[in-house]
């Protein structure tokens, strides 16, 4: 099964009342979330369980995109929820749960990556990407699977070679399908900064891929 789930707020309303309904649903969802957060602040683990249920896939896949390893992604995303619960009083409900939670998750992931780099430089280990994280989609011809998977592997390796700031926007945009507005909220910056970061991230990604292939993208 492919990972096509989006963050709940991104779901576009098909037909019907359009933007007005979408805004109403968003407001209702925010108000439900605010009520859950209030219960969490009073110590309700059940309410926090509902929040975990809502965001666990996003947390896991973002961590997977950032650290590239299933076990680490699972452990880091669960640790981020644990820390979020312990610090829930410092959450400003005006921003919503996810952008605040995302800051905890990304800091954990980047700190984990820094420690891993130090360990690897000390032990002379090579960086290994967990290839099982890349999933091949539908293949149009019998020759295509290997070719397609090889291409996907190269792209995944290139993403892993991006610096943290650039990998982050690529993961949020491509692997979580978040809109510029949602990325801006998660990164506490404006949409212009997101656009600019995406431009430089893609430029860097293109250069890495061209170096790997020894020529321009075909």
């Amino acid at each position: 099964m492919q990972n096509t789930k989006k963050i709940p707020e991104t779901k576009k309303v098909q037909g019907g009342c359009g933007q007005a309904c979408s805004a109403k649903r968003y407001a209702a969802s925010r108000s439900r979330e605010a009520a859950l957060i209030e219960r969490c602040r009073k110590g309700s683990k059940e309410a926090f369980g509902a929040i975990v249920d809502k965001y666990m896939k996003d947390a896991y896949f973002i961590a997977l995109g950032l650290v590239g390893n299933h076990e680490d992604a699972l452990d880091l995303s669960q640790e981020a929820f644990f820390r979020a619960y312990n610090n829930i009083r410092s959450l400003n409900t005006k921003w919503g749960f996810f952008p605040w939670f995302y800051q905890i998750l990304r800091n954990l992931c980047f700190s984990h990556l820094r420690k891993r780099k130090v360990r690897q430089s000390h032990s002379l280990e090579q960086l290994t990407e967990d290839e099982a994280v890349v999933f091949a989609g539908d293949c149009p011809s019998p020759d295509a699977p290997t070719e397609q998977m090889e291409m996907q592997r190269q792209v995944w390796q290139a993403v892993n070679h991006l610096d943290d700031k650039h990998r982050e926007v690529i993961v949020l945009r491509h692997f979580r399908n978040m809109s510029y507005e949602q990325i801006a909220k998660a990164l506490f910056c404006n949409k212009g900064t997101v656009t600019s970061r995406l431009y430089y991230a893609r430029k860097e990604l293109k250069e890495i891929l061209e170096r790997q292939k020894g020529g321009r993208l075909q």
Partner: peptide, 17 residues
């Protein structure tokens, strides 16, 4: 070039556990 790159990046999906 960016269009080709986007299509390549979009083809990479993370495996659902």
């Amino acid at each position: 070039q960016f269009k080709k790159l986007k299509s390549l990046t979009d083809s990479v999906k993370l495996a659902e556990p």
